[in-house]
Amino acid sequence: MVRLAVSSMFFHEYPIDEIFASVDEAGLTGIEFWIETPHFWLRDLPTGDLTAAVHAHPSLAPITVHAPVLDLNPCSINPRVAAASQQYAVEAVALAEEAGAEVLTVHPGRRTAKRTPSAYDYERFEAYLARLHEAAKGRRVRVAIENMEPKVNSLLCTPEGVREVLDANPWLDFTLDVAHAMSVSAGEVCRYIDLCIDRIVNVHLSAVENGKMHLQVRGSQEAAAVVRALTRAGYDGCLTLEIEDRNFTHPLSLEEKITLLQGERTFLEGCLS
């Protein structure tokens, strides 16, 4: 059964327990917890606080987790940056397992220079995947790599590229980022679904308008079409709302964020019915 979730980064400035309580109040049934959520990240990753929040809100469990990606690049040409980035991702596997998460989403990295990725960049990418594979062995959490925006230095930004990586790594799953794909076209999203549906375990869902990404989905016919296409294809994982709260005309209060999510939930439930 499809679960409706939201990224914890929508509640960027709030403490962990308040984030979980707000998502619960909005009537959603899941949450993607970003390890870089400030109240968690800046307090040295208090995993006990996260597991306590999960246990206090069983309707949101199992959660999904997003590995650290800000300021990081696991395929960096700088060996120290690459090593630190990979280590954060490896440690995120254990953290997600401890929190009882079903999916950990990771980013693929990128070529450091704004140029087409070279063979050397893909060698570093393969080494990164090998480290993730080793970290995931014997664990219940599923590691899912995310498609990126189609920029010149992106390592993973086409349906065919994702399929190739999935075929080469049977242990690996896929998080479909709709906004990243929609920046090409609505048809690109459908191509990801057609090629990769057997490995999609999480979907980052938001609307795109006039080049602006991570907008709310309520009223978006393109977002509705994506949800229906996923349903027809048999998808039954999380639909995770990725909404950028800075896209609104004023800073949203906590109550406004909860109300907005209630509207998103109603809209998506209509798409799924």
Score class of each variant (00 low, 15 high):
L4A: 04
V6A: 09
V6F: 01
S7G: 13
E13A: 14
I16A: 10
D17K: 07
E18Q: 15
F20D: 13
V23C: 05
E25C: 08
A26M: 11
A26C: 10
F33H: 08
W34V: 04
D44V: 05
P46L: 06
G48P: 03
H55K: 11
A56P: 06
S59Y: 08
P62I: 04
T64G: 00
T64A: 00
H66M: 11
A67W: 02
A67E: 05
P68I: 15
P68V: 14
N78S: 05
P79M: 13
R80C: 03
A84M: 07
Q87L: 14
Y88E: 13
A92E: 02
V93R: 01
A94Q: 09
E97G: 11
A99Q: 04
A99R: 00
G100H: 05
E102I: 02
L104D: 00
T105N: 03
G109L: 08
A113L: 15
A113R: 13
P117K: 07
S118M: 10
A119S: 13
E126M: 11
L129N: 05
L129D: 03
A130Q: 15
R131I: 06
R131N: 10
V141R: 00
V143I: 12
N153Y: 06
C157M: 06
T158E: 01
T158D: 01
G161V: 12
V162D: 00
R163T: 08
D167F: 03
F174S: 05
F174K: 07
T175W: 04
V178R: 03
R191F: 05
R191E: 05
I193D: 00
I193F: 09
I197L: 15
D198R: 11
D198Y: 06
V201D: 01
V203H: 01
G211A: 10
G219V: 09
G219K: 07
E222R: 12
A224R: 07
A225W: 14
A233E: 06
T240S: 12
E244S: 14
D245L: 14
R246M: 13
F248S: 10
H250N: 10
P251T: 07
I258R: 07
I258F: 08
L260N: 11
L261H: 05
E264M: 10
E264D: 15
L272E: 12
S273D: 06
